[in-house]
Every structure is written in C-alpha cells, then in structure tokens.
Amino acid sequence: MANRNNIPLKSPVTQKYEFGPWQLTSTKSHILKSEGPERERFDKTLELPQVPEMVFAENILRLEHADGFGVEFNALDALKRVDAHNDPLQVAVAKAWQEARSDCEHIKNVVKPFDWTFSTDYKGTVFGNIKMESTTERIDLEKLKRRDQIMFYDDFLLFEDELSDNGSSMLNCKIRVMPSSFFILLRFYMRVDDVIVRVNDTRIYYEIENNYILREYSSRDKQMKEIKAPINVITDMNQVGPHLTLREEQIEKLIFPTKDLVDNNVS
C-alpha cells in the first residue's frame, strides 16, 4: 500500500562501505507507490494477483567483489519465490484454517488462488560465476557471539503485510561487518493468527581469508495451538524460531571464481 498517510516521499538513502575487495552498498527508500515505472516493473514481472501492502522496492543490499561477483538482496526477487498459482497454507492446515478464519476474504479467493501469506524461500540473488555446492561446514555461531567491533551495520524491511488483519508477513534483512568478517541474516516471518507460524532464515557468513561464503537456509513452522510459548514470543520474529519445528535445511558454500575464470570472462 503506497504512502497511506500522505507523508512526503523521501529520496533513497545509500550507504557504502569497503571491506577489502568488497563494495557493500545499502539503499533504503519509501514504500512502493501504487503507480509509476517501478510499480509497472513489479506488476509485469510478478504473476501474483496482488503484492504485499508495503513493498520496499528500493531497499537493496548489494555486496560486490572487485572481480564482479557477489550477492544482492531485494524485494522483487524475493517475491518471485512466492507461489502465484496455489494456496499451500489452505492445503497444509485446511481444517484449522477453516475453523479459525472462515470469515477471511482470502479463503473465498477460489478464482485465482495464490500464497496470500507471501511465504518465500528467497536466499539472496547470486551473480557472477559463483559456484554453489552443498557442505557440512557450519557457520561458527560462537565467533558471532564475540564482542568484535562493528564496522558497519544496517537493518531494513523488504516487504510487510498484515494479512487482512489476520496476522503478519514480513521479510527483513540485517548486516553487520566486523574487522575480519561479515554476517547477514535474511529472515522471513509469517503468522496466521490461531493457525500457524513460520520462520525462514538465511544466514550468510564470510571470513576475509576464505575464497567462499557460507550460506545456511532453514525453514521452521508449527501450528499455533502446538507452540508452548507466551504470545509475546510467538509474535516476535526474533524469538519464536526455537519454538518451531525444523522442516527444511540447506547448507552451501558459495565458492568464488578463480582469477583465470574472471579474466577469461572479461576478455
């Protein structure tokens, strides 16, 4: 929903930070307007019959290596991963959904069903000749708990929707850069009141001496009646995760191209 309170739109604010051979660029701006070139681009690209109420189309985090490869996080690519043809939630928890939210407008949407919770398994947009392969190496969470100096930090939304006052759906991105590493957390949180909670996390970690980035993705959910936690935890995207059931996990190395490969692509 664009500029709902008629607040003057602000120009994008961009921060840049150099981390060794990496250029980190973080841009934050206003909610996507209901019309205009940017909205047309979203409507033409996506098959969704509607987009979230608040889409931050110009909120982008981009990490680009001097050799031209890297990873980016943006709302359009995240929404491409939303199911535009089926309503998987209604299938997964059909009975609970029918009982709890039979008066919701979405349950009557049988003409063109879609995932109206905007659930996405988006893990970032990789560009350049990065090779992705499965690994058993995990991110060292103990290192992340150390009180290292924070050289750069940012935290912003990519999209948010209140699901017609029946819950919440949002995608948030955070980055922090330490003297010898950087860490990114991309977190999707979805709650349909009295029905289900889901958290999809993508964690990205890089240490300056490595020629690869570790990427861990996990998807957790649980029906609300089964969650043994107070409501303030259930409604907090940063606390509810440990109370949910792990459904899927992927651990990958994003391996950088060799110098020879980079040179061949340039020539």
Rank of each mutant, 00 (worst) to 15 (best):
Q149D: 08
M237P: 06
P113G: 01
I213N: 05
D194L: 04
P230L: 00
V197M: 05
P113V: 01
R4T: 08
R146F: 13
P88K: 03
K108H: 12
E252P: 00
I7P: 05
D148C: 07
I227V: 12
L141V: 09
F114Q: 06
K44V: 02
L32P: 01
L48T: 02
S164L: 04
L89A: 00
H85W: 14
Q250V: 12
N232R: 07
D43K: 13
I231P: 04
I213K: 06
D121G: 13
N86P: 02
F42T: 10
I150G: 02
F69R: 04
T258V: 13
L48Y: 02
S26G: 09
T117H: 08
V93L: 11
L214I: 06
G241V: 04
P88N: 01
H106V: 08
D194P: 11
M170E: 09
F127D: 05
V197P: 03
K112W: 06
K174H: 12
I107C: 06
Y153E: 10
L89V: 02
N166S: 12
E252K: 11
T125F: 11
R220C: 08
S11C: 09
P8W: 00
T120S: 11
W116K: 01
V110W: 10
L63P: 00
F56M: 12
D201K: 06
Q250G: 10
H65G: 06
N211T: 14
K143A: 07
L244W: 04
M190Q: 13
F188C: 07
P113L: 07
K131H: 05
H243I: 11
P88A: 05
L61I: 10
V266I: 10
K131Y: 08
K33V: 04
I208K: 14
P12C: 07
L186D: 06
C104K: 15
A78W: 00
I60T: 09
A94N: 05
